[in-house]
């Protein structure tokens, strides 16, 4: 398959950036978008040109490193996949494909398609954990966790932290990311002790990073590679209200 590419090139954080045209020829239909970029890059390197920088690693949809906006769709125009999982067979031969970085104020562009998502780490550091030191843990089966609760917590915990939610949200909000962690730990008995501090601290950090606020458009849920549900945002809202108004 052959494709015409329009790729965002930006030398560094301060550069203005622009689109550049490339062609990708003889791409296997089973290749992923990233494997197509590998081919383009090999040619660029051989020609002595600066290859297109993009984040990637596991290439099986779990590490959360990759993330491109493809033809206006975060992780591509389809639902529930990461960029690395998107195969070229979903496109037609000769298509023009536009590749842009994730765009949101708290995700500054480092180079080309690589963005700085360390804001997510700082949100996690603010409270995305259960305070338990190594060696303090009680017997694992000591507290029963009903299967339904464990399953719902797992649904939330699947978040890969790729940032698609914030990149696709018209408000650039990271609510789904924050909600996934708050909801997981609010559901499990192990996380309940700190639930109030956690909700308040993580939301405060999210605001501090400059993410927008949620206006319930649910754009995030539609594009989340793991399909994390916005019902977890509802639980985050509840946790936040409870922390603000509830008794100590």
């Amino acid at each position: 398959m052959d494709f015409k590419l329009k790729v965002w090139r930006q030398k560094n954080r301060d550069d203005k950036g622009h689109f550049e045209d490339y062609t990708a020829k003889g791409i296997s239909e089973a290749a992923s978008v990233l494997e197509m970029l590998d081919v383009v890059n090999r040619e660029l390197v051989a020609a002595g040109k600066d290859p297109i920088a993009f984040d990637h690693d596991c290439r099986e949809g779990i590490c959360g490193s990759c993330g491109l906006v493809i033809n206006g769709g975060v992780h591509g125009p389809f639902e529930h996949n990461t960029t690395c999982e998107l195969r070229m067979r979903r496109f037609s031969d000769g298509d023009t494909i536009v590749l842009e970085p994730f765009r949101a104020r708290p995700f500054p562009i480092i180079k080309d398609l690589v963005v700085d998502r360390s804001a997510f780490d700082r949100i996690m550091q603010a409270g995305g954990y259960v305070t338990v030191k190594t060696g303090q843990a009680p017997e694992a089966n000591g507290i029963a966790v009903p299967k339904k609760i464990a399953d719902e917590a797992m649904d939330a915990a699947q978040c890969v932290g790729c940032g698609a939610c914030a990149a696709t949200c018209p408000n650039g909000s990271a609510m789904l990311f924050v909600a996934a962690k708050v909801s997981q730990l609010a559901l499990l008995p192990q996380g309940k002790a700190e639930r109030k501090e956690r909700a308040l601290a993580m939301v405060a950090q999210m605001d501090k990073e400059g993410f927008g606020s949620c206006s319930n458009t649910y754009a995030c849920e539609a594009k989340c590679p793991k399909g994390v549900s916005v019902t977890h945002i509802a639980r985050l809202n509840r946790e936040y209200l409870r922390a603000g108004f509830g008794s100590k």
Binding site: Y129, V130, V132, Q136, A137, A140, A150, M154, A157, Q184
Partner: peptide, 9 residues
């Protein structure tokens, strides 16, 4: 034990 206490589902 440790992982369960951390909230691993």
């Amino acid at each position: 034990d440790q992982c369960v206490a951390q909230g691993v589902p």
